[in-house]
């Protein structure tokens, strides 16, 4: 997993609540057995005029001009502003893979769905929860200011706006540690293999039917 330390990047606003993972990456792209290449299909139904299929030449597809991420000013965005309950619905990790593949490393929203939130950390993407009122302000600033950027500093847990305002955010200590160091958590769990074996030995006596 790629490390996450700081990010200074263009911000794109996606102003609607309950954005579900079906919208982030539609089902036809879940047939892939790979982890990469989902970026061109991020928000596929909103991004393109016609429904797409895997394997198409994406450069030939017509874009919906009014979709926010199709606007030239947001082309290089790596930070996404979103609304309540972002990433709800299906557990598909492809949603995070698509965001990451399209360049997004940070999503800022008032709330996230649990599974999506969790999936982000496994892929070097940082989901940040801020108060809805702060989000309202950021949305207004992004829309009013061309090339609006934010600086996200994970170590110090701060977001700095272009006028120098510092916003602080919370992050789970263990997840922060994994993200800062780009750590694979399977390796970390494997360090506790003896404890897992001891648990199993105890459970085999307490609940032998689970091991039949």
């Amino acid at each position: 997993m790629e490390k996450f330390e700081t990010l200074d990047a263009i911000v794109a606003p996606l102003d609607r609540p309950n954005v579900d993972t079906d919208a982030i990456i539609p089902k036809q792209y879940l047939k892939s057995v790979k982890r990469s290449g989902f970026g061109p299909n991020l928000f596929d139904d909103w991004r393109y005029l016609e429904p797409g299929e895997p394997g198409q030449d994406y450069s030939k597809r017509k874009l919906k001009p009014d979709f926010v991420l199709n606007q030239p000013r947001y082309r290089d965005a790596r930070i996404l502003l979103a609304r309540e309950n972002f990433g709800c619905g299906s557990s598909r990790e492809h949603a995070v893979w698509a965001l990451e593949d399209a360049g997004f490393r940070v999503v800022i929203a008032p709330s996230f769905a649990d599974i999506f939130f969790n999936n982000c950390f496994k892929n070097g993407v940082l989901p940040i929860v801020l108060d809805a009122a702060i989000l309202d302000r950021l949305f207004a600033q992004v829309e009013a200011t061309p090339d609006y950027r934010l600086v996200v500093d994970l170590e110090h847990q701060t977001i700095t706006t272009p006028d120098g305002e510092k916003l602080s955010f919370a992050v789970d200590e263990f997840r922060k540690y994994c993200l800062l160091n780009g750590l694979d958590d399977i390796g970390l769990t494997m360090q506790h293999a003896d404890e897992i074996r001891a648990y199993e030995a105890r459970r085999k006596t307490e609940a032998p039917w689970l091991f039949a």
Binding site: S91, E93, N118, N119, T189, M190, I196
Partner: peptide, 12 residues
């Protein structure tokens, strides 16, 4: 769970 967690459960 997500796919990374599927792998985690498979392995551990």
């Amino acid at each position: 769970i997500g796919t990374s967690e599927v792998e985690h459960v498979l392995a551990t």
